[in-house]
């Protein structure tokens, strides 16, 4: 894991040693000015005794950005940037707001590194709900709160669908799914997978439909402006869509206005919860119910 290797060398001595000892367990590393380094894993969190100074935080952040701040400016205005191995760095500090939009970030007080890992086999229980007996691919939406494995699951689904010979296209707005470097995925997303990254999902999906003739489109964390229309257009083109969205329950999902129109596209809804990668519930559409399927009896729980 390139990001953790680099971080280990940049952290104060004790924190670096702790990271080295428990690297495989670490899901998150949090650094705050004047506070100890906090590590989080599946079974809780632990801290080092080192206190992070403002200069150290700034130095580590600049190094993680490869001293190329200008390349991260747009991402930072959304509060995060993604490392080349797919790890996401969420940054908190003083926002520069011009009255209409957040233009960037000036002072940084803390940041959190969320570790991206490939987990082979994590989609084993889900694949039978996505691939029908006829071989058709059903559109699916993975739903969960933050940090519960949506991206890891999507990556594995992409690899598996590609592995059975499907042309899979990934709209990787935040470079997290495929961690592409100069357009080439560094994570295993399957032999027949094409990746477009860096652009807004809605535009990327339209590009992929024109450029790559996909059978399946995969997109992480939908809910942005134009996402619903782009997904609906993909579905009308006969393309299956596998996506993820933030919500703690199916009910919360239906309450997200930006997602309501997008829900029509999906045949299967998968809820993750409790701990990373844990499938709590799967609901499948049992007739062409259209919008609002999650609210009414148009779905049956299958797990």
């Amino acid at each position: 894991m390139e990001t953790l290797d680099r971080l280990r060398a940049l952290l104060p001595e004790e924190a670096g040693r702790m990271l080295a000892e428990r690297e495989k367990e670490v899901h998150e590393v949090r650094l705050r000015v004047g506070r100890p380094v906090q590590f989080r894993g599946q079974n809780g969190s632990w801290m080092s005794n080192d206190v992070i100074e403002a200069a150290t935080l700034k130095r580590i952040l600049a190094s993680l950005m490869d001293h190329s701040f200008y390349t991260r400016e747009e991402e930072l205005s959304q509060g995060f940037f993604t490392m080349s191995d797919g790890c996401r760095v969420g940054v908190c500090g003083r926002l520069i707001y011009d009255g209409q939009r957040i233009r960037g970030m000036a002072g940084v007080g803390s940041f959190c590194i969320r570790v991206s890992r490939e987990k082979r086999g994590c989609a084993d229980g889900i694949i039978p709900h996505i691939i029908e007996e006829t071989g058709d691919i059903r559109s699916a939406l993975i739903v969960s709160g933050p940090g519960l494995g949506k991206t890891t699951l999507l990556r594995e689904i992409a690899r598996r669908l590609s592995g059975v010979g499907r042309n899979v296209c990934i709209a990787d707005e935040r470079h997290e799914l495929a961690a592409s470097r100069e357009g080439v995925p560094t994570l295993d997303v399957g032999p027949f997978t094409d990746v477009m990254d860096g652009g807004p999902k809605a535009l990327t999906i339209a590009h992929m439909l024109r450029a790559a003739a996909p059978e399946v489109i995969i997109a992480d964390e939908i809910g942005g402006e134009g996402d619903a229309a782009a997904l609906a257009e993909a579905a009308r083109c006969g393309v299956s869509v596998i996506a993820s969205a933030h919500a703690g329950t199916f009910e919360q999902l239906t309450q997200r206005r930006s997602l309501r129109d997008a829900l029509e596209v999906f045949d299967v809804f998968i809820l993750l919860g409790e701990k990373p990668g844990n499938v709590v519930e799967i609901r499948e559409e049992c007739h062409a119910a259209g919008a609002g399927v999650l609210r009414g009896g148009g779905l049956r729980a299958v797990r």
């Binding site: 490869d66 001293h67 190329s68 701040f69 200008y70």
Partner: peptide, 10 residues
Amino acid sequence: QLGESGREQQ
């Protein structure tokens, strides 16, 4: 200063 600031400053 190369790379250490935003696009406009660079």
